[in-house]
Amino acid sequence: MEEAKKNTEAGKPIDYTKYPEGFDAIVDMLDFIPEERRRATMLSLIDNLGRR
């Protein structure tokens, strides 16, 4: 939670269920994936989560 607050403007917590701000905040955390593939990875995951 503290880490999330550091990423906000004026200390307001990020609502991670909002798109694109919550989505983008999580994409930025995927530092174990090459940057150019992070967004596609998340979009593919959303697709799978929506179906399964």
Partner: peptide, 17 residues
């Protein structure tokens, strides 16, 4: 998957995937 969730949860989900 809640507004106040710890974002690490989604990161963990990506890793599980």
């Amino acid at each position: 998957f809640r507004p106040d969730m710890d974002p690490q949860l989604m990161v963990d989900c990506v890793k599980e995937n």
